[in-house]
Amino acid sequence: MQSTGSVPDYTFLDQMEAAGPFHAAECFQCRKCTSGCPATFAMDLMPDQVIRYALLGLKEEVLRSRTIWVCASCETCTTRCPNGIQIAEIMDYFKELAVREGIPSPVPQVLALHETFLDNVRQGGRVFEGSLLPIFFLRSGQLREKLRKGTWRDDARMGWRLLRKRRFALAPRPIKAREEIRSILRPSKRRGVLP
């Protein structure tokens, strides 16, 4: 990634560790996290670079990176880091921070899926797949893309097969404690307030 030349924020590490602790300062750049990461092919910063940038206070670069959004949350890096650094958890923290600071995701589909999913949970307390996917396709712009490319037919066929195989619940089954769920899960507009 090209450096945008932003001013380093030397308090960044402290902010981060206050939300953790993630033990980022213990990184000795062995790159084991990156070696085992299955998603590097889609990343602009390698996982070890994310940690390094964070230590250097390059907050903007990290929060604007594609890496934090294409991370698959597979936990391989966290598991293998010889210094116990919680890299996958740091990726999550950065996503949440980016949302809170209003930094647009460079991979908007990923954020759209998370937001659609959480709105869905807020509604009934459980996910209802029947409305999750259509709304996500609409919200992420994938529907327009599918219509343009004609690939919507594949999806329609897949939906139809699921339906025929009775793998789609036809109606949501909301839980009783929906109010409680709403008090836990804020609406997307108010999300991103870290503990």
Binding site: A19, S73, D92, Y93, K95, E96, V99, L111, L113, H114, E115, F117, L118, V121, G125, R126, V127, I175, K176, A177, E180, I181, I184, L185, R186, R191, G192, V193, L194, P195
Partner: peptide, 25 residues
């Protein structure tokens, strides 16, 4: 009884506090 969604990837990605609380409930 009356279980709810665990929050899955979505919650731990953008709302850490809720991800813990949804599962804890």
């Amino acid at each position: 009884p009356d279980w709810n969604c665990c929050g899955a990837t979505a919650a731990h990605s953008v709302d850490h506090k809720a991800s813990v609380e949804l599962a804890a409930r």
